[in-house]
């Protein structure tokens, strides 16, 4: 359940590497109780953003607020977070249990039961004496998740967390995230290439491209925007918009780049739209009915048919 309190706020967060701006003035907000989906292509800046939030990287400029504390003091709240960024890393010569016990001791977390609880949650309780270096990718990912959950965090930062998981693992992960969010109020910031999975759990989205935040939107608003519509490609979008409002008495439309209108009315009577535009002197190149999923929405946002 979303709360108006912000767990994370970034203010014009920028990270440059030489001449390359990996992140460019990103300002976003993750509210308490959100499952915030970070969507972007390879190299868009998702991992860079998560690394800045987790303290692995230092911003070139800008600031961030974690649990209401900004600047240098934000690190004090990092013990309320759980993080998986890139491939999970552990000591190769230790077992799963020993690795988690090491971090439990280091972090001063009370109770040895925490380790067992974390391992059971990700179904790694039977790994015995197997060293981390012998783990499969899926097992490594599960152990990373176990570490992220061990301190019972209020805020989870997950970068491609279902990499390497089998379908059963993906389903379990989805259920676990929903359970943590629903039953424990855990706020989750998750980046994933697998948009169908993201769409099944996210309550808010942030769309990143080339280091810039293109849009932030709630799942409800996105659903509204993606609902079935008529896509009309015309020669003069402003004139067509006027005709829709005056002749058809509707303002249920959006004007998109490239003289395209997205019309949410007259879905059962598209011929009325074509007739009105034609009578108003607007050339109609195409008129088709379309609904959008998250992937198509994102592709449209970045302005092209390119892979995520």
């Amino acid at each position: 359940m979303r709360d108006d309190k912000a767990v994370l706020v970034t203010y014009n967060l920028t990270r440059t590497y030489g001449a390359v701006k990996a992140l460019d003035n990103v300002t976003l907000t993750v509210h308490k109780g959100d499952i915030y989906g970070l969507v972007g292509r390879n190299g868009a800046g998702k991992t860079t953003l998560l690394r800045l939030i987790s303290g692995q990287s230092i911003p070139t400029s800008g600031d961030l607020e974690l649990f209401g504390t900004a600047g240098h003091g934000a690190f004090k709240h990092r013990n309320r977070t759980g993080v998986i960024i890139e491939t999970p890393s552990f000591y190769p010569y230790l077992t799963a249990r020993e690795n988690l016990e090491y971090y439990r001791m280091q972090r001063g977390l009370p109770g040895k039961g925490l380790v067992e609880e974390a391992l059971e949650r990700v179904h790694l309780e039977d790994t015995g004496k197997k060293k981390f270096k012998s783990f499969s990718l899926g097992m490594k990912q599960r152990l990373g998740l176990a570490l992220a959950l061990m301190n019972r965090p209020d805020f989870l930062l997950l970068d491609e967390p279902i990499n390497g998981l089998d379908p059963e693992g993906v389903a379990e992960f989805r259920t676990l995230m929903k359970e943590l969010n629903r039953d424990h109020g855990t706020t989750i910031l998750i980046s994933s290439h697998i948009l169908t999975e993201l769409a099944s759990i996210a309550t808010s989205y942030g769309f990143l491209d080339q280091g810039k935040l293109l849009e932030e939107i709630t799942a409800e608003a996105l659903h509204e925007k993606c609902r079935t519509c008529l896509l009309a490609s015309v020669d003069n979008a402003p004139k067509a918009a006027t005709i829709l409002e005056t002749a058809l008495d509707t303002n249920s439309y959006d004007v998109l780049p490239g003289n395209v209108l997205q019309i949410y009315a007259f879905l059962d009577a598209p011929q009325k739209v074509s007739a009105a535009l034609s009578q108003g002197g607007v050339a109609l190149y195409s008129l088709e009915q379309k609904g959008m999923d998250l992937e198509n929405y994102f592709l449209q946002l970045i302005g092209g048919e390119q892979h995520v």
Binding site: Q56, R78, N79, T81, V83, F90
Partner: peptide, 11 residues
């Protein structure tokens, strides 16, 4: 091994 990130990320 990359394990330093686990320590930094915890604060």
């Amino acid at each position: 091994t990359g394990t330093l990130k686990n320590e930094v990320a915890f604060g």
